[in-house]
Amino acid sequence: MQESLLFDLIGLRVSRETLERLRHFAELFEKWSRTINLVAASTQSDMWTRHIADSAQIFALSPEPKQWVDLGSGGGFPGVITAILLAEAGAGWVHLVESNHKKAGFLRVALSETGARGSVHACRIEEAHRQIQHCDAISARALAVLDVLFDFAAPWVERNPDLHCFFHKGRDYQTEVDKAHGRWSFDLLQHQSAIETDSVILEIARLTRKI
């Protein structure tokens, strides 16, 4: 599918300049993937649908410029995509947290060469809240079960109770939601993915720990 049509599918209009930034990111990704395992090899051939457009759905749900923390950024999904989309607005920022130093090196190059609005924190997620004092939103994709993600998010939620989390999840997400309710109270808004029929984006608000 044509790149611009993919963004129409998720209800997001992007400029020609933003598309060029995304294309350059895709080229960098392909180059670095020859030596670093950034994503599963089986999904790399479908980069624009499976990764770029799928990641952009989070930005489409909350496009106002804000301070983001992207947990376990890996190959840049969704963090770098969000940071590229923010460049068009000239406001907002993405803090990408990635403990693997080779992947962190790729992320820094990708942000720099695309002019994206973000920075990389090469540290463990559990330590990131000491480097990043405040955020308005948290994102993560294919990282951990919901209960663990809530533990990761908790330090920022304590500083900003109005914070929203956006987590990509697959078909078994309801099991994770049910388990998380054992330790947490939260408001949940489920967004069906326009890219993957079996996937959702869970928007979490008013997160508080029960025990």
Rank of each mutant, 00 (worst) to 15 (best):
V97G: 03
M1R: 02
Q67H: 13
T114N: 11
H24F: 12
T197Y: 00
S119L: 03
N160D: 09
L202H: 09
H191A: 03
F106S: 11
V145R: 11
I201E: 07
A91N: 09
L86K: 00
A104W: 02
P78E: 10
V200I: 10
A144V: 06
V14P: 02
E158H: 10
W184Y: 13
H168Q: 14
F29N: 09
L6C: 07
D46L: 03
E196R: 03
M47H: 02
G170C: 05
K66C: 07
D172C: 04
E17A: 09
A40V: 03
L163S: 03
I138F: 02
L202I: 05
E30N: 14
H191L: 06
V177N: 12
P161N: 12
L38N: 11
H51S: 13
G90K: 12
H181D: 08
A89G: 02
G76F: 07
E176C: 11
L5K: 09
L61G: 01
E158A: 14
A89S: 14
H168N: 13
F29C: 05
E64D: 10
R117A: 11
R34G: 15
L9W: 00
A154N: 15
Y173A: 11
V97C: 07
A53Y: 00
I204N: 08
L22N: 03
L71Y: 05
D151P: 00
G115K: 08
Q44Y: 01
L22R: 05
A205P: 00
V69P: 08
A140E: 06
F166A: 05
